[in-house]
């Protein structure tokens, strides 16, 4: 630690499509509650940003148990988007969030374009809410339950609906459960997205062999954790070549080295997800590690390493 203190601090500021961050390290939605859950364990003021648990118009109770199961180097979850709903979020959670000296991004989810637009409008103009992240991995009830995030036209439409309803910077969180992630990113860019974040969880499942029952009551769930990092990194790299809006990398990040891989692949910022559960200090360690890396690489600014992966022959 002493050695770290003696190195000069690099410039870690980044801008995610109109959302300025003091550093590129954020927490991923659904892994950090509404921030306060971690107040004793993390210096929240030090974070680049906090993405809070996804909010819907009505409170959602979530799925029946069991909701989570550990897998090799990862976990499956089927929480079912349990949340307090927008009214309680605004009255009970925002007063605390606005005392934090960090950027607060509110993740929103809905069943229809109207619901997304309503949430975006309702969350605008509040002190302590700095941007929106749109979860488009939800089923579109009016279109037979197909997820918005697996159809480029629907993804574009939901982006446009949210953009029309708010002046806040809008980040679209992409689902990895598609054949061509780059075309999804291009669709939301055309819809007016200020940035994209990726990846959401990969759909998976597990079976208890003695009872022959699925390990999750919901049968299928979202895989997260270090197990998905290579997939996430590949997708960020592909999207970086397809769009010009900033990218926020998510997927199995637990160390500074992980975070730097995403920056080199083209992400402007990153979100730490599952690692918050088992290593609440992960975000702070990554910030410290970024300073160290930039010093070793003789860089003074984190922005100079974004997308600087070296391809082709090493000679």
């Amino acid at each position: 630690m002493d050695a770290v203190k003696t190195i000069p601090k690099a410039d870690l500021q980044v801008n995610i499509g109109g959302l300025p961050l003091r550093n590129p390290v954020m927490t991923a939605s659904g892994t950090f509650g509404y921030g306060r859950e971690f107040e004793n364990l993390v210096n929240l003021h030090r974070l680049g940003g906090i993405v809070v648990k996804g909010i819907s118009i009505q409170p959602r109770p979530g799925n029946p148990p069991p909701r989570i199961v550990e897998t090799s180097s990862g976990m499956l979850n089927a929480i079912g988007l349990e949340n307090v709903g927008i009214e309680r979020f605004l009255t009970e959670k925002v007063p605390y969030l606005k005392t934090l000296r960090t950027k607060v991004v509110v993740n929103i989810l809905g069943d229809s374009l109207d619901e997304y637009a309503y949430l975006a409008e309702k969350l605008s103009g509040h002190e302590g809410i700095h941007a929106l992240e749109v979860n488009i991995s939800c089923p579109n009830v009016k279109k037979g339950g197909v997820a918005f995030g697996v159809d480029p036209e629907m993804a574009k439409a939901v982006t446009a609906a949210v953009k029309t309803a708010t002046d806040l910077p809008v980040m679209i969180k992409l689902s990895p459960n598609v054949t061509d992630i780059a075309s999804m990113a291009q669709a939301v860019e055309q819809g007016g997205a200020d940035s994209v974040s990726l990846i959401n969880t990969l759909i998976g499942m597990g079976i208890d062999t003695s009872s022959r029952r699925p390990k999750l009551a919901n049968v299928i769930g979202g895989l997260s954790g270090p197990a998905i990092k290579p997939v996430a990194l590949r997708m960020v790299w592909q999207v970086a070549q397809a769009v010009s809006i900033p990218i926020v990398g998510i997927g199995g990040i637990e160390t500074a080295e992980d975070a730097i891989e995403f920056l080199l692949a083209g992400a402007t910022a990153i979100q730490v997800g599952t690692a918050n559960f088992y290593d609440p200090q992960a975000t702070e360690k990554i910030i410290t590690g970024l300073h160290q890396y930039l010093y070793e690489q003789k860089e003074i600014c984190v922005r100079s390493i974004i997308g600087t992966i070296r391809l082709g022959s090493s000679t």
């Binding site: 659904g30 892994t31 950090f32 509650g33 859950e37 971690f38 364990l41 648990k53 979530g62 799925n63 029946p64 148990p65 069991p66 909701r67 989570i68 199961v69 550990e70 976990m75 979850n77 929480i79 349990e82 599952t274 918050n276 559960f277 088992y278 609440p280």
Partner: peptide
Amino acid sequence: ETHMACGLGACLGCTIY
């Protein structure tokens, strides 16, 4: 006792009825 990922009220995985 249930399975839980965080113990802090963030993962919402340790549900009972």
